[in-house]
Design a protein around this nucleic acid. Structure first.
Length: 927
RNA sequence: AGGCACGUAGCUCAGUGGUAGAGCACUACCUUGACACGGUAGGGGUCGGCGGUUCGAAACCGCCCGUGCCUACCA
């Protein structure tokens, strides 16, 4: 008998097999979707959330990749023409910042290079490192159709962006306007509202100062958190009904620093008379509410800020100061003039740039906007009427709330890296020409002296087109017809507005059809304490370290280079003193899958990864055993479910049925935790713990029929389980599956084999389950008695048992050899049940057990003290259960109102528990 | 300020009306011819609090306490 374990080491080594099989799949073309005209298979399409070109693999990517790969591999195995569309995002600001940082190290700025050279430099960097993230996704096992990989700045993507821009412009949905925008003084670009994070609970100062009236000595006191903005004040507002200030109506105050008379205006909308002094300084150019007030009253808008955050010529003597220095300077000057009227602590929220982190300044600027309302309405409808399903459904409310209150989207950015805006300005007539092609003449006056708009588009503008631009839009391509709409959109909930909602709007607008049918939103990966992973905290877990292993020294070294704090390093030392073993991609995948998709955070624990590494090893060794026993037997997997006679074989097929059924339901409903859990427990708790143990007795029985059907069941169950697990653990299942003896003309790879179905590949058998459970209960009882009485394994125990149930009696007699092997006992059927009523007289020092329908004793081995303790513990537990059931049955309304089957079951349970209890009490009293 | 979650074993989390679950950790025993990355048997929870609905609540409703997140505003 050849031994396949020769080439199967005792422990599974993921590092040795994962890369090999990945290459095999990729070279075999298994990832590629088909565009053959005569391929009539239904399609399944999922577009990847394109990672940033700057990115390197983090746990968020690992999580996305795992979930998406499971969905795609499952559908592919079910026979769908599956397209997992990959790509990379150019990531405007993020990328520009990275390259600028490189330049800084060389002592240069982008302005030293000039725009053309700078953009060329970014491209060069992209070519060098842009593929890295995709290589890393491969380490996770991602089955993307790499032949179609897109970059959001590819020429065809540029074309799609221009086409959509021009169309929206022509439809009046893109327009140019001058309004108050969010300005990032560090990146020196405008930001959309979504790119501004509100930092809550910041301790600031509410500063009071006085404006003197132009005529006379009296004053009004105003409050501000940004004193420097007073340089741009063009009004002071009071409430029209505020009697305290009635004498100020129509008056003016004099600005202390700049030569300006400032009107006192009446505004009921801006002013809350209860707040502060009831007088508000109005800075239309630097505050959203003041801007609106200014529009109502026709106030002058005086911008006091340069684009870099310093003060401009309108700031008078403060010109040139940085905004924060100017704040102090203004306060000092006001103090010198004796105008300070107080200051107090003030908790406020501070708007910060999502990217640069700097405090955002509102200022007036001319930008391009997308009119969102007309686009939002169809997007709301698509979710309301179920054309798009959002899971978990709680997110629908968030989605509706945002879309119903949506503001226009500022899409221009003052960056160099990104999609150019296809708009040209005429020097002669100042009109704008928007065009698909490079404009050569002004559309109004025909002049040829044109300047292209220097700005680029928000990176999310091209992302919004992703589901169809990647398939060839605006051309009517075969791919677009075949693969649009896509089916699932899987991503993190943090980009539901940035990306998901905008894709829905653009998909509906340009394709007339939803871009996908389901939105699957996953939680964010945190460390095991639930804290956000951050380089400073040192709690970033690199997926590649988990896959390939890393020593504690290596982890610390990496964290130090990434700028971890002392506390972060200490945390690393304490939490992972031994570093990580090479757990492998499959273990990491299985771990990520085991978290509920409902949860908002995935608190990743290395211990949990270790648990699934152990599971991989369990599967490996179970297979090693099975293959060893099958070698030379001639048995092979056949894709036909065997029809065995023996109890254990029927039982395992029935449990397989249950596991496959749960797995399929979970996969379809996007409960990947349920799906992976069902297979995990089937493999470990049932296949390994029971079936393999029983199979040893069967295969050694010498009974040719039993041996043959056990081999057939064993190989079938193993092979089917591998196929079911493949979407979740692709590498190890392939590694084992390749070794399993199989039917002729089996596929070259498990990844193109058929996904198993409960109905086809298994067989539910209630009788087998019932009978085997009785067997399990008996074996467990024997084991408990053994453990409680410290009976060594080497010593067989005698069991005297009785049952009134003919089937169980038959089972125990048929399975005598199995039970004796599993429990280490010798079985004796006791025909006279009355003997059990008086155990002491018939069986010396007997331990008693009572199972459903079965009772018995193990005599002559028992320490009465331990037996008493055991029985008392069992009784205590029983009493608790019985108490609950009796309380329920004792309720007079229960029988009337509860469903009959529930009442029946409770009665049966109570009877069973009572009888069990009685027998244990008798046993206890006889000790 | 509003909205949305969450609070279950030491830790991380499942569990949508019928006798409280998993992984890890813990205790005892076992190097048994697949596996010590293992096996067997155990211990551990008044399901945040208080009320309500119900024959029956961890689950449904209300209030409170605590924790996160989101949106808006903040002179």
């Amino acid at each position: 008998m050849s031994d396949p374990s020769d080439d199967m080491p005792k422990a599974y080594e993921p590092d040795k097999s994962e890369a090999r099989w990945y290459e095999f799949w990729e070279e075999s073309g298994f990832f590629e979707a088909s565009e053959e005209p005569d391929d009539a298979r239904a399609t399944y399409t999922l577009a990847i959330p394109p990672p940033n070109v700057t990115g390197s693999l983090h746990m968020g990517h690992a999580c996305r990749t795992t979930f998406e790969d499971v969905l795609c591999r499952h559908k592919r195995m079910q026979g769908y023409n599956t397209l997992w569309m990959p790509g990379i995002d150019h990531a405007g600001i993020a990328t520009q910042v990275v390259v600028e940082r490189q330049l800084k190290r060389e002592g240069l700025t982008r302005h030293d290079l000039g725009r053309k050279a700078f953009v060329e430099r970014v491209w060069r960097w992209k070519e060098e490192s842009g593929g890295r993230i995709l290589q890393q996704l491969r380490k996770m096992g991602a089955s993307c159709d790499w032949s179609r990989t897109k970059f959001t700045l590819d020429p065809d993507m540029v074309r799609a962006v221009r086409e959509s821009f021009v169309r929206l412009y022509e439809e009046g949905l893109i327009y140019r306007d001058t309004r108050l925008v969010n300005w990032d003084v560090e990146s020196q670009t405008v930001l959309s509202d979504l790119e501004v994070d509100q930092e809550e609970g910041v301790e600031g100062e509410l500063f009071d100062f006085a404006y003197r009236l132009a005529d006379g000595d009296s004053e009004v006191v105003v409050s501000t958190t940004r004193p420097e903005t007073m340089l741009g004040d063009t009004a002071v507002a009071i409430h029209p009904d505020d009697d305290r200030y009635r004498h100020l109506h129509g008056k003016y105050v004099r600005h202390p620093f700049v030569d300006r008379m400032i009107p006192i205006i009446l505004d009921a909308e801006l002013v809350d008379p209860e707040f502060g002094t009831g007088v508000v300084k109005v800075t239309p150019a630097h505050d959203p509410n003041d801007f609106a007030t200014g529009k109502r009253h026709g106030l002058e808008e005086i911008n006091v800020l340069n684009l870099d955050g310093t003060l401009n010529e309108n700031a008078g003597r403060f010109q040139g100061l940085d905004r924060f220095a100017a704040r102090d300077a203004v306060k000092d000057e006001l103090a010198n003039l004796g105008l300070v009227r107080g200051s107090k602590k003030h908790i406020m929220t501070l708007p910060r740039s999502h990217r640069s982190g700097t405090v955002v300044e509102p200022l007036i600027s001319t930008q391009w906007f997308v009119k969102m309302r007309p686009l939002a309405e169809p997007a709301i409808a698509a979710v309301r009427d179920g054309r798009i399903q959002i899971l978990p459904v709680e997110w629908e409310k968030t989605y509706f709330h945002w879309l119903e209150n949506i503001q226009d989207w500022c899409i221009s950015r003052q960056l160099w890296w990104g999609h150019e805006i296809p708009a040209w300005y005429c020097d002669a007539c100042e009109d704008v020409t928007v065009s698909r092609e490079e404009a050569t003449a002004c559309q109004s006056c025909g002049a040829t002296a044109l300047r292209q708009d220097p700005d680029v588009l928000d990176t999310w503008f091209s992302s919004a087109l992703w589901p169809f631009s990647t398939l060839g839009w605006p051309d009517d391509t075969a791919a677009l017809r075949r693969f649009y709409p896509t089916q699932d959109m899987e991503t993190g909930y943090d980009i539901i507005f940035f990306w998901v909602a905008r894709m829905i709007m653009m998909g509906l607008h340009f394709m007339g059809e939803v871009p996908f049918n389901r939105v699957l939103l996953a939680g964010l990966v945190t460390d095991e304490r639930g804290e956000k992973m951050s380089k400073v905290k040192g709690n970033v877990i690199d997926p590649l370290d988990v896959i390939h292993g890393a020593t504690n020294e290596a982890l610390i070294d990496k964290a130090t280079k990434a700028g971890a704090s002392k506390g972060g390093i200490k945390y690393l030392q304490k939490t992972y003193p031994d570093g990580f073993a090479a757990y492998g991609a499959d273990a990491l995948r299985m771990t990520l899958l085991s978290y509920s998709p409902q949860s908002r955070r995935i608190a990743l624990s290395i211990k949990r990864i270790e648990g699934y590494r152990n599971f991989a090893n369990k599967l490996w060794n179970a297979s090693r055993y099975a293959l060893m026993r099958l070698a030379g037997s001639g048995a092979k997997a056949s894709q036909q479910c065997p029809r065995p006679q023996a109890l254990a074989n029927r039982w395992v097929l029935s449990r397989l049925y249950q596991a496959l059924d749960t797995a399929s339901t979970g996969l379809d409903a996007y409960r990947l935790d349920d799906a992976s859990g069902a297979l995990y427990h089937f493999v470990w708790d049932e296949f390994c713990d029971w079936y393999l143990e029983v199979s040893k007795t069967a295969l050694d029985s010498g009974d040719a029929n039993l041996v043959r059907e056990t081999e057939a069941t064993l190989v079938h169950t193993l092979e089917t389980t591998l196929r079911a697990l493949h979407p979740m653990m692709p590498h190890i299942t392939e590694e084992i599956w390749q070794r399993v003896p199989k039917w002729d003309a089996a596929p070259k790879s498990i990844m193109v084999a058929r996904f198993p179905s409960a109905l086809v590949d298994a067989k539910a058998d209630r009788d087998a389950v019932r009978d085997f459970e009785a067997l399990q209960a008996l074996v467990r009882s024997m084991r408990t008695i053994r453990a409680e009485h410290d009976i060594p394994r080497s010593r067989a125990i005698e069991v005297h048992w009785h049952t009134e149930q003919a089937e169980i009696r038959q089972v125990f007699q048929d399975e005598r050899a199995t039970i004796q092997a599993l429990a280490g006992c010798v079985m004796h059927f006791e025909p006279d049940p009355s003997k059990f009523d008086d155990p002491g007289s018939h069986f010396d020092n007997a331990a008693v057990f009572v199972n459903p329908g079965v009772r018995g004793v193990v005599p002559s081995v028992i320490d009465p003290g331990k037996e008493r303790a055991r029985l008392e513990r069992a009784l205590k537990k029983l009493d608790k259960e019985l108490g609950a059931v009796e309380k329920k049955l004792g309720n007079p309304n229960f029988a009337d109102k509860a469903p009959a089957e529930v009442v029946e079951k409770s009665k049966r349970d109570a009877a069973e528990l009572r009888s069990k209890r009685d027998q244990l009490e008798v046993a206890l009293s006889r000790l």
